[in-house]
Every structure is written in structure tokens, then in C-alpha cells.
Design a binder for these strands. Sequence first.
DNA 1: ACTGGCACCTGGGCGC
DNA 2: TGCGCCCAGGTGCCAG
Length: 270
Amino acid sequence: MPELPEVETSRRGIAPHIEGQTIANVVIRDRRLRWPVSEEVDRHLTGATINSVGRRAKYLLIETTGGTAILHLGMSGHVYLVDTGTPAGVHDHVDLELDSGMALRLTDPRRFGSLHWCLEPLEHPLLAKLGPEPLSDDFNGEYLWQRSRGRRIAVKPFIMNADVVVGVGNIYASESLFIAGIHPKRPAGRIALARYEKLADAIKAVLERAIRAGGTTLRDFYGGNGESGYFQQELDVYGRSDEPCRICDTTLTTVVLGQRATYYCKRCQT
DNA sequence: ACTGGCACCTGGGCGC
DNA sequence: TGCGCCCAGGTGCCAG
């Protein structure tokens, strides 16, 4: 169930094992992901050689001599390497079998993930209108402030909107608002530039720290190397309702915003 | 243009 | 042990 740091961890985990490899065979056991997996995927990837593994937002981009596979892990997807021929479980929907004898396996119990094939992935309808990468220079407080003028939506769903900025999911939205001292329900259009500068810095910092920690392992996430991340140990507010704020000791509060659980400190965040 | 709500799907944990 | 309910790291689409 990945946000940007978990996708990036997966990318770094699988890249060294699959870059330069030729895809000998594509096995698709179940095409029923969020959108049906097109037969274009098998047709174009079979026999192709993988040049690189990139990422845009929460999409993994497996760029090959036969076009690019666009892979989204949804809420419950994982990718990892197995020996080719390893028996598949019910949720092991796709294997890319490589010349090395290994296979890149996609597992996704809830099937909210997706797999597309495209020649120009950044022009794909799912990617074309995405906001800036949070770790790029295009994303900063000035940008957030500009985009939020006139908006009445609460700041938390505002920063989780991929049209505004990509990669900020439910965990890191709560975490970054805590770091910036901003109440998650505050209307986005009523936050000053200086506070948005703090928020942009907090988003970058928390995502970078989480990537360094190998992501957050809450239930079952693990990176492409099969190891758990350990950022969950560093979470300040997410999942900590009724526990004390690490700054002021006030009991943390939870509220539902945009149908998503939201955690904050009512004393530190205003 | 914006906003809030629903939908997709499975599994784990809980209370009874 | 079993059942029903609630919850879960995402995001496209719909109506108002």
C-alpha cells in the first residue's frame, strides 16, 4: 500500500535486478486489475529488453526496447523478484520472466493497481495532467500558495490531490502537516505564504526521510528486496490517536477528512 | 471550477 | 468457531 517513498523503495529494490534483462516471457494470470490489462502489454513486452526503471508520481515506469510498462501498485500492490517458476498464489497476477532466471512478480490482493503499455508514458492520460514531483524545485511554498488562492477545501485533501502535487498520500499528508504545525482542516485558501513554505519544506523532508528508511511498513508492504521499511517507527501522528504528542504531550486526535483518517495534535497544529 | 461522495476489491481484526 | 461489521498506504468519476 504504497505512497511515494514505498514506490521509490520498490523502484530502487528491483532496478538492479531487471535493468539490462530481456523479458523472455510475460505471464498474466488475471487481467482484472483496476482496468483490464490490455494484451498490448504482453505483445510488446515479450522479447523486449529493459533499459531502466523510472518513477513518475506513484507510477513505476519500466522502460524497454518495446515501449514502457506503466505500473501502479494501488493500495495493496507489491513487486518483487522470484525464481522463474515459483508457484503463484491467488493474488500473484503478473510475472515478467527474465533471461536471468528470475521473474518480476506483481502481487495485488485488492486489485486497485494497474498495468498499461505506452510508447510515451508521460503523455498517457493518467500521467499527462499530474502536478509537480514534491522533491523537485518546481514544488515549493510559493507554488502551493499560488495554487491554493480561493480554494475552500481543507488543506489536507488539497495536498493529497495529485493535480496539485503528486506522491503525498494519507500517511505523509498527516505527518507533514504536523511538522509544519498546520491544522489539517484549515481551508487551503486561508493559509499564508510563510506557512506554505514551512509545509513544502516539511513534505520534502518527510518524504526524503521515509525514502532513506526504506518506506513505511504498516501491514504488509515490503520493498523489491523483500525487506520491510522502518519509517513507521518515526511516524509522529499517523496511527497514533489517543497517544501523546511527541512535542507537547497532548493526546492526539483523529478526524475523517475526505473519507480518510486524519491524525493531528490539536495543540501544535492551528 | 470546485467540492464531496462513491466506486472498485480483498483480507485482517474486532465484538458478539 | 462463525458471522457481521469496520478499517486499510489510491484515485477516477459522478452529481450538485
